[in-house]
């Protein structure tokens, strides 16, 4: 272990990890409370939860690998650069593609979207990007295991097609011809 790591205050480790542990610890506490009130139903709920976990575990492993690869190679700045160039159709398609492959919480993307907007990107493009975040290619294995291929394929196609209509509505209401917001 390097000396720099040795100098880390031990208390800060707990401070950093506490928010991550908050949810699982809350669930555990909830289960323990429910166990004391209704043990039979809690056992049924535990078995049901473990069954779901067993069902989606192989898909989750695949999801983890896909997300790791995606986060390694694609950064928000790549999308920002791409969305500022080319014709509107190309920009719209790129916005859709960027939304589909974007990962992580939306809060991480708001600063980049704000920056894009300030540099002149249309509201419609940002709308298309945000709707396409609903398409999660790396979560497809889990979704297919629950709903089946046909459902997932139709839902994905409808979402991508619908994103363009949202982009159109947002653009019609908010974008002026010179790209600035309508008063």
């Amino acid at each position: 272990m390097s000396p720099a790591i040795n100098r880390i205050d031990p208390k800060s480790r707990y401070t950093i990890h506490f928010p991550r542990l908050l949810f699982p610890v809350s669930v555990l506490v909830l289960y323990l409370v429910l166990w004391s009130v209704a043990p039979q139903k809690t056992w049924l709920a535990t078995r049901s939860s473990l069954g779901i976990l067993y069902h989606v575990l192989p898909s989750l492993c695949l999801v983890f690998l896909l997300m790791a690869g995606l986060n390694l190679f694609l950064k928000p700045v790549h999308f920002a650069n791409a969305l500022r160039k080319g014709a509107i159709i190309r920009q719209t398609l790129l916005a859709a593609l960027a939304g589909i492959v974007s990962a992580g919480p939306i809060y991480a993307w708001y600063p980049m979207l704000k920056d894009l907007r300030e540099k002149g990107a249309d509201h419609s493009l940002i709308g298309v990007f945000l709707v396409n975040r609903a398409v999660k290619p790396f979560l497809l294995p889990v979704m297919v295991s629950i709903f089946g291929w046909t459902y997932v394929l139709i839902l994905t196609l409808l979402t991508v097609a619908g994103s363009f209509s949202v982009g159109f509505v947002v653009g019609a209401l908010l974008d002026s011809r010179n790209g600035s917001i309508q008063k």
């Binding site: 940002i126 709707v131 139709i154 839902l155 409808l158 209509s165 949202v166 509505v169 947002v170 908010l174």
Partner: peptide
């Protein structure tokens, strides 16, 4: 905060409508 209240309201209302539209489409 990031994109303005007009954008946020229009986008969320549009997406609410889109969700309903997609469910009928499905």
């Amino acid at each position: 905060d990031a994109l303005g209240w007009k954008f946020a309201v229009v986008r969320n209302v549009s997406c609410f409508g889109l969700s309903m539209g997609i469910s009928f489409g499905i």
